[in-house]
Design a protein around this nucleic acid. Structure first.
Lengths: 256, 256
DNA sequence: CCAAAAGTGTTTACAGTACACCCATGT
DNA sequence: ACATGGGTGTACTGTAAACACTTTTGG
């Protein structure tokens, strides 16, 4: 088994990390009309967790979160923002954690720093699913995408709570910022965009009104028609126009 | 000079605290048409800072924030919520910090834990100004209320950034929750409530429309008239009715 | 009686909702 | 031709904005 840098860091109780604090990333993607999150499955278990990591002593929280995201998805610049800090002293059961690591083939002493109390900062990332190839990590068996409404049964620690909070924060984001366009590919149809909104909000929207509202924001550029697909009228393709969005900043309720 | 428990904790590098993490509280109050925040002035300086503290190893972040708030204001149950985590490694200049402590009559070695990098969790509290008597602390000369729009010139560390972020978060809160009523006394006039909204948003609102909107929420109870005051019609007093608010939870956009 | 503040009414405009209609295309 | 999905039009509704009017009170 080949060990990564992180593995050595763990075993050697890397002193370059800030003690007692970690980062967990909820990485959202959108694919086939499903809102997906990236989860990691620990080796030799059926237990999933959020991708996370620690903060180097000379790095900011945002830098650490970006580094962790880059490491897991290969994406360097995307929408990434903290949404909550989780600080319950019982949020992680150290016994459960140690058991998981053992199953992973990593046998750590019970006084290892990993099993101390950690506060964790929740970040969510909105990534273009089509550009992502999840990387594997340590000797975790798998890392893969899961429908947010159909998560695995066993999720480690308080990570299910973190996922719930992240989804709630994402819903609030819809009303305030244009960041959700980071979840779309470069070009998309109005139907696909509507499907994203419906999936996040978990409710149906009226097609006609959705279209009008989106176009009225003055942030979309209409391209040539897409001809593919089925027995029906071919839809236009749209592109998110960040220039227009910037220009309309003060005429709509989005951004600050 | 009499020293408090906190003083001894500091000098002895209390090991019961979580290392590397702190809490800073932005305590909002409303008085004489001004949105106030509670600041602390370090002894023998003109430097102000937010009231803050550390987290005991067995306590949650929320518990720690409540404890710190209680300690500073004597209020035990009020609206208190985290709004952001500040994690820039340069957010506090340790030299500045040590200098301030020295001026305070507390001479600590430069490798004291206080001067290590700290991540800080920002909490805001919304308190009823009429019920608060700020407590003094350590040998800080003063702790007092300041108009959020007329802060002291010298504010320590990144605490001015924290204040700005807190004010922005408070403005967002106006649209989503009814928590701002915690800033009002038990009874108040519609004009006073409008003044609170205007002060937070820093813009004028139309009296007639504000009144209609507030009443339409169905969360206010109208009491007897207030007869005091000047040469004009005496206003009604209102009381925030948390029962009504609960009942109307699903008929308006507030709360979750 | 008048000024000042409080409370209510009215008009208008715009945004959200629901639904109807037309368009384009592959089978 | 027709079923399917895409795009537009329109009437209805509710809320928000602006402004006018009335009420109460002290001087």
């Amino acid at each position: 088994m080949e060990h990564t840098t992180e593995y050595k860091d763990l075993v050697n109780q890397n002193q370059d990390f800030l003690p007692g604090i970690s980062i967990d990333c909820v990485i959202f993607g959108f694919h086939e009309n499903q809102l997906k999150v990236l989860l990691i499955k620990f080796g030799n278990t059926q237990i999933y967790s959020l991708p996370g990591g620690f903060i180097y002593k000379e790095e900011s929280l945002d830098e650490a979160a970006n580094r962790i995201l880059d490491h897991r998805t290969g994406i360097e610049d995307t929408y990434l923002e903290q949404f909550y800090i989780f600080g319950d002293p019982k949020r992680v059961n150290p016994e459960e954690h140690r058991w998981i690591m053992q199953k992973n083939g990593i046998d750590l002493p019970s006084d290892h720093f990993l099993f101390n109390r950690h506060i964790t900062v929740g970040y969510y990332a909105l990534v273009d699913f089509t550009k992502i190839q999840p990387h594997s990590y340590l000797n975790h068996e798998e890392s893969g995408w899961f429908d947010i409404y159909d998560l695995p049964e066993t999720i480690a620690f308080d990570h299910r709570d973190i996922l719930t909070k992240a989804l709630n924060s994402l819903r609030l984001l819809l009303d305030h910022k244009l960041a959700v366009f980071n979840l779309m590919p470069e070009t998309f149809t109005m139907g696909e965009l509507q499907s994203l909104y419906e999936t996040i909000l978990n409710k149906k929207l009226l097609r006609a009104n959705f279209q009008r509202k989106m176009l009225s924001l003055g942030i979309l550029e209409r391209l040539d028609k897409k001809w593919g697909g089925g027995a029906h009228k071919a839809p236009y393709l749209y592109r998110f126009d960040s220039q227009k969005a910037e220009a309309n900043k003060f005429s709509n309720q989005f951004e600050e």
